[in-house]
């Protein structure tokens, strides 16, 4: 596909942090679960924002052409929007899946930033306290768990935590291939009935596909969500 300049993935911007941030934002927005926090990228971007903010202030004092200042300001606004939106989507997901994140230790450690970890913990504590006080403590003893519908006294471990909202990994997403992806690289969908047609994607190809099937590919950056 002759999409050199038209594809959303390749552009001059690859040299700067804007395209990676935009990609992270789009992926985060389109993915049903929380993705890995882009520690270095976010650090670099926030430093650059600070720097540019300083420059704009200096310009204002020095009486530089107001047009130029307003253009710098626009650039700044755009990147701040991306950054804020990125962080906000993550917080929304965290609020939604806090108990899930706390239960899945590995996911918790790998995917969240330091601040986000603290946020999950506080958030979950507050939520638990609130539910305990308002509802759960008034229920019979074996209905008081926040994670389970009810508990039996004997075998506590055998039960599943069936009151924990989990991210819907079977959601269909639209992905675009960044490089060639062969049929064997797609995960099988969990559902046994659907016949997984052999699928391959050329760079730039789009697919509607259950998130679960491309989760790994997204992590290895072979595809992006659109």
């Amino acid at each position: 596909m002759a999409s050199g300049s038209s594809g959303p993935t390749e552009d001059l911007g690859t040299l700067t942090d804007v395209e990676p941030l935009k990609r992270a934002w789009r992926n985060e927005k389109a993915a049903p679960e929380i993705l890995r926090y882009e520690t270095h990228l976010i650090y670099r971007v926030s430093k650059q924002i600070e720097l540019l903010e300083g420059t704009v202030d200096d310009f204002t004092e020095d009486g530089v052409d107001p047009l130029m200042i307003s253009l710098y300001q626009m650039d700044l606004d755009r990147i701040q929007f991306l950054l804020r939106s990125y962080l906000r989507i993550r917080l929304q997901k965290i609020e939604k899946y806090m108990f899930h994140l706390l239960l899945k230790k590995q996911e918790f450690h790998e995917k969240l930033s330091k601040e986000e970890k603290a946020f999950v913990q506080r958030c979950a504590e507050d939520m638990k306290k609130h539910l305990d006080e308002s509802v759960l403590s008034h229920l019979p003893k074996n209905y008081q768990s926040i994670l389970k519908q009810f508990t039996t006294v004997e075998e506590d471990d055998a039960e599943v935590d069936d009151m924990v909202p989990e991210p819907p990994l079977d959601t269909f997403v639209v992905c675009i291939a960044r490089e060639y992806v062969g049929p064997s690289e797609f995960q099988d969908s969990s559902d046994s009935l659907a016949m997984d047609l052999p699928l391959e994607m050329e760079p730039g190809d789009l697919s509607f596909i259950p998130y679960r099937r491309i989760k790994k590919l997204l992590e290895s950056r072979k595809v992006d969500l659109v």
Partner: peptide, 20 residues
Amino acid sequence: GRTSAVQIRSLSAMEVNIVR
């Protein structure tokens, strides 16, 4: 119902967003 994935070529961003 057999479709577990649908492949589309050269659909544009806005078109994807509308049919999504």
